[in-house]
Design a protein around this nucleic acid. Structure first.
Lengths: 331, 331
DNA sequence: CTGTTAGCGCATTCAG
DNA sequence: CTGAATGCGCTAACAG
């Protein structure tokens, strides 16, 4: 025994009140030697904080992809480095009760909402429960909720300005499915608006197609697209799973990449691009930054030191690889 | 008030002792009305069980892929349906202390080890801590530990027998990197042995190549492989990220798939195959079954009802798509 | 079958 | 600056 009371130990380890340096060190040393670690559960019960954060997925229909896994792993990493744990909550239904059950166990201090849709019913549940939460994405019908999102507009602007500089004037944009668009899935809606508006202001002859996340189906549609959009020199794609179909479709027409046609993947992850050949130029999600912002905001909320921040949007970063080049015939 | 004591409520909700049906129903009804849910933390402190399971990843070098995300999401789903929560632990280092710190918080009731390597240092830590755990994969240097794994041998056998029936006699197997092999990464070692042994016993002219999980690098090596293995009619691949390079390499040689050459992806996931065109024939991991076994075994261990089971290996299932067919000239 | 009660292992008042 | 005492909300052993 070091000859101190339990409370002194508690304070020494948590640093909530001033303690003589000598004792503090002695206690820490003793704790290390004995391999002592405070029991997380007991600490939680006493303090009212569990140091657990949930990352919440809605029922998955369109399946989960490579970018999501990056987000999950990065979140876990980030959260752990701050002394928290991450639990994954995968909802099976859209029934609010399911989420209510989870919340009311009071197992977690805060929640990160993934895959935010418009009129997301989860938001009301969390708000009513009074639990801190952050949206990764936006719900336009729930303004005022704290969110962090990708800056689709800036990313598309960067992309189109850059393509224009390379001489591209006729650009086809392959978005995700029309169904997602109708469902108000944030990214699809945001990027749609950005493309339409920017093509106008930049005087680019742009054409948008919604397409399924299915290589074969898209491949089948490519001939139609080519005949509807003659002279196209660039494809911008925000649909990882459609990419193989698009690339094959381009080659099938006898065009080379990037000699005849440039291909850019938007809002993607390096991992997804590595599944393709030629290696694709992409606008890569800044996963680290995105997650760092989400987690620090959430923890600030939890710990009561929450402050509004001006910056909630993170643009993607251009990574030039082998699928893009100057427009053909633009000297 | 329903007019009963706290313990009656506790027993009614947990069903640990017999209670008159009438009261039980009355209590449950009241609880529902009041929206009462036992506080998970308090329950844990009193019972010594947290109902939390960890899924543990080592520091990632080769990056994490599509099959892993299926495993994670399925594990979360499975675990939640049994009243548990899943926390994801991503280690930053190989330092045993890092894991010891996590374990000794006693936040979790049990651990699932992912990405098991030979001489996996995590195993000793968990064993010494006396915490229930299950390996998803095998460590040959730690026999006796409970594991569930893919049945690489049976899968390869199924694959080669099937290819032989289609007339294929000269088969190239593309494994993962030589480095992984040297590190004793389970899947790479297991599948290597299976391939070598089965080619002998089935009298197949087989050739194995280790390759990086990098489409471009593999693409560069393909000409050499073709000249070293003339007459090859089938490629078996257990390396998702090398696939684009392999497929492009085959086409570059002027061969068609599956007209001239068949391609099979081993131990993969439907998601990964959907990133490729033509749509690949694959031997798909039975994620649901794998995870169901892992989780039920682990929970049995945790709850003390653990029994040895004979079956710990799960073979992959053949999904025929468009990348395979009879060997050329085997009419 | 049911009520009473003592902890679970900490954080956090309150005295000193 | 430090020690003793209280209680977080529940489970489970103990009585009845």
């Amino acid at each position: 025994m070091v000859g101190v009371s339990v409370s002194t130990v508690s304070y020494a380890l948590n640093g909530n009140r001033s303690i003589s340096e000598s004792k503090k060190l002695a206690i820490k040393e003793a704790a290390r030697k004995l391999g002592y670690r405070p029991r997380a559960i007991a600490r939680s019960l006493a303090s009212g904080r569990t140091h657990i954060i949930a990352i919440l997925f809605p029922p998955v229909d369109h399946g989960i992809g490579l970018p999501e896994i990056d987000l999950i792993m990065e979140t876990s990493k980030d959260v752990m480095s701050r002394g928290y744990h991450l639990v994954i909550w995968t909802l099976q239904t859209n029934d609010p009760d399911e989420l209510i059950q989870l919340i009311s166990q009071e197992l977690v201090d805060g929640v990160i909402l993934m895959e935010v849709h418009r009129k997301d019913r989860r938001i009301a549940v969390l708000r009513d429960a009074g639990i801190p939460f952050i949206l990764l994405g936006r719900d336009e019908d729930a303004p005022g909720e704290t969110y962090i999102d990708i800056d689709f507009f800036t990313t598309m602007m960067h992309c189109l300005v850059w393509l224009k500089k390379l001489g591209h004037r006729r650009v086809v944009f392959m978005n995700q499915s029309r169904k997602s668009f109708r469902n108000g899935y944030g990214p699809v809606v945001q990027i749609h608006r950005a493309f339409v508006e920017l093509c106008r202001s930049l005087e680019i002859n742009g054409r948008e197609y919604f397409c399924e996340s299915n290589g074969e189906m898209v491949f089948g549609k490519m001939p139609k697209i080519f005949s509807a959009c003659p002279g196209t020199t660039a494809f911008v794609v925000m649909n990882d799973k459609a990419l193989p179909g698009i690339i094959s479709g381009i080659m099938k027409q006898g065009f080379s990449i990037p000699g005849d046609i440039s291909v850019v993947s938007m809002v993607s992850s390096a991992a997804a691009a590595s599944y393709m050949l030629p290696r694709l130029t992409l606008f890569e999600m800044d996963v680290e930054r995105l997650i760092e912002m989400v987690v620090s905001l959430l923890i600030a909320k939890i710990e009561g030191s929450y402050v509004e921040i001006p910056e909630r949007l993170v643009p993607c970063t251009l990574r030039e690889h082998q699928s893009t080049g100057p427009a053909k015939g633009s000297a």
